[in-house]
Design a protein around this nucleic acid. Structure first.
Length: 373
RNA sequence: GGAGGAGUGGCAGAGUGGUCGAAUGCACCGGUCUUGAAAACCGACGAGGGUGAAAGUCCUCCCAGGGUUCGAAUCCCUGCUCCUCCGCCA
């Protein structure tokens, strides 16, 4: 038509013009149909969970998880060990009442030695991951766009578990969201893989559906701190990376001399977007139970597909989807609970792990009245 | 928060309604020249997807999404991002 116009052939131009106009209406109708159907299809696809890896054990719930590692021996207590919030050395520094005044239930105000221990634990974790495990320290926003929550799989199905600001940002429930979405929409050079990030962030969770569970102490909070690891890998490397990350997390507990066990989640307990998940559970003598301090998962290409995150193969082939993995390394608050409960003494004081001494001015314990000594 | 301006290939930067997926320069790549390199010169040179054994071929893409039009990089609307100024704040 451009040619006809340029040649000044007005008759041909008008004929073509009418023809196009006619087809245009049909086209518009068809486009509407396509759009409606593809939106519906997309919604369905976004609601589909990931496929478990072949070696994930079948099972209905957490009782069917399979232990794959156990480290350390729980101490033999000559007295009945207390829960963290009842230990004299910790009691005054964990203030749930004043936190309730400020913010409501499931919050805590830490003061003095508790605040310092909490901070120091996070720093110890970061230092270990950066210096010994070669992860890239990363500091991210904790408010993210909605599409990032789709990218890692929190949305569309699990919006009620997180918080959203009035202008549309989401508060991250885990640093997995910003760290993984760093590669959202990117085509990476294969030679830059793997990418290994670690970040210490606040996390926010509504804890919808957990009413009445773990309400005592600081085990389950709306706001907590976590050191998170995220690896972006070539598909061939992701399985090995999963084990590497698990060791990184386990290493933190070993250095802190805290007994733990590692389980592989069965199909029934596996999260929406994950192929295989290892949970690391630390021994809490006050509860006489192993409790989760870390969850390390391989998403395969599940998140990468949602994010359209790809890499260019070294042989120059077409871009392929990356694999993404994430894991806590570790939940700071829960880890502190373990330090408190495992180190408690009959006199109400707490012996601290050796590795923290350098962070605590050489001090080795918390006295029953809450001071470092 | 207010007022302006801008988003084009790896980078810079033309293009303001008609064979534009897009000038030019730089970078990169191949070659000539050279003992070698540089310079100079010649050539090639955006991305994603479909199809194909390959050569090729088709589709989509000028921040994103809508709209106007027979036709949009170009006009309109919305969003996002960046820049400048003012305000405010850590």
């Amino acid at each position: 038509m451009g040619a006809a116009k340029a040649a000044g052939d007005e008759a041909e131009f008008q004929r073509l013009r009418a023809l196009v106009s006619e087809n245009k209406a049909k086209n518009a109708d068809l486009n509407d149909v396509v759009k409606a159907k593809s939106t519906a299809l997309n919604d369905l696809l976004l609601g589909l969970p990931n496929l478990p890896a072949d070696d994930v054990p079948d099972g209905a719930d957490e009782d069917d998880n399979v232990e794959i590692n156990r480290w350390g021996t729980p101490r033999n207590f000559a007295f009945t060990p207390r829960e963290h919030y009842d230990i004299p050395a910790a009691k005054d520094g964990l203030n749930f009442d004043v936190a309730a005044k400020l913010s409501g239930s499931r919050f805590v105000v830490l003061t003095g030695t508790m605040a310092r221990l909490h901070r120091v634990l996070a720093q110890f974790m970061l230092d270990t991951h950066v210096n010994d495990n070669n992860l890239l320290e990363t500091n991210t926003p904790v408010l993210v766009r909605e599409e990032m929550m789709y990218g890692t799989g929190q949305l569309p199905k699990f919006g009620e578990d997180s918080y959203q600001t009035t202008n549309g940002w989401w508060l991250i429930p885990t640093a997995e969201v910003p760290l993984t979405n760093l590669v959202n929409g990117e085509v990476l050079d294969a030679t830059t893989l793997p990418r290994r990030h670690v970040a210490h962030t606040l996390c926010f969770r509504s804890e919808a559906g957990s009413a009445g569970r773990d309400t005592a102490g600081m085990l389950r909070q709306h706001q907590f701190e976590k050191v998170e690891m995220v690896s972006i890998t070539h598909p061939n490397e992701s399985a090995a990376e999963h084990n590497r990350m698990t060791k990184c997390a386990e290493g933190i507990l070993e250095r802190l001399n805290l007994p733990y066990r590692t389980v592989v989640l069965c199909t029934g307990d596996l999260g929406f977007g994950m192929r295989r998940t290892h949970d690391i559970e630390v021994w809490l003598p006050g509860q006489d139970a192993y409790r989760e301090v870390s969850s390390i998962s391989i998403a395969g290409d599940f998140q990468a597909r949602r994010m359209n995150a790809r890499f260019k193969p070294e042989d120059g082939g077409k871009p392929e989807f990356l694999h993404t993995l994430n894991g806590s390394g570790l939940a700071v608050g829960r880890c502190m609970i373990a330090v408190l409960e495992n180190g408690q003494q009959e006199d109400g004081s707490i012996d601290l792990p050796e590795v923290l001494r350098g962070y605590l001015g050489g001090k080795t314990r918390i006295t029953a009245d809450g001071n470092l000594a």
